[in-house]
Amino acid sequence: MRVCNIVITGFICSYSLSFSANTVANSDSEQQGYAIASAVELRDEGFTDSRAMLTMELQSKTGAKTSRKLDISVLENVVEGDKSLIKFTFPADINGTALLTHPDKSKSDEQWLYLPEVRRVKRIGSRNKAGAFVGSEFSFEDMTNKELDDYSYNYLYSLPCNEIQTQANEFADKQCDVIERFPVDKHSGYSKQQLWIENTDQKIIQIEYFDRKKSLLKVFTASGFKLYQDKYWRPSLVEMKNVQTGKVTRLSYQSIVFASGLSEQDFHRSSLGD
């Protein structure tokens, strides 16, 4: 099975082909939650590769803003999990810096960071999955590969999508399923996530993240969905708001290209400097 994480929605996806014992849901609502999560990842199968250019805007509590620009490439890999490459293009100080992630099911993912100024590739520890991604409100955990089995699920209820205030226009006549998922890994920064999934196209349009003490920490919203390759829905704007600190991070996508012919070679650590 494969599940795509919605934040860079499907740009970083991963696979898990086996159903392990602990994923066998034992109540109706758990089974239903699991089924909805499976449906989401099924929508994304077969995209082979994608490249996106986006701007990451950080906003402080007082409303001051600063931004970064990055390119994200993803290579679909059904067996091992999707490989991803994030390249920073702005600000100038970190232009050319690149983060390569190879998922590894058996142990922690492998990550390398290329620093152009010193022309060095450094492997970095990947036990920081709950940590913040370059000072943004997104954590690695929010952005990188997820497997279906990383969570247990629970179906809550369904409701018209326009009852979520922020999504009123775009999903006016659509129905949303609301499910909860609970991370299995105790090093996760979260105790729970609550997802709103539009149920005709399986678009994840809102997620609430609850911290380890079960208080609401962050709210993720996605909007401006566009259809690519007649199959893959991608938002053009996502926002992560930290309700405890008042900080917000917005990602706006300038372009998304599917199946542009990326190869394993593009995702090898030796090509990082290219």
């Binding site: 920073f88 970190i94 810096t97 983060l99 990550q111 960071l113 620093l115 450094k122 970095i124 520890g125 036990r127 920081n128 709950a130 940590g131 913040a132 991604f133 370059v134 000072g135 954590s139 090093h187 920064g189």
Partner: peptide, 10 residues
């Protein structure tokens, strides 16, 4: 940037 990328939650 390398350091920031490596920091744990919180």
């Amino acid at each position: 940037l390398l350091y920031e990328m490596s920091l744990p939650f919180g």
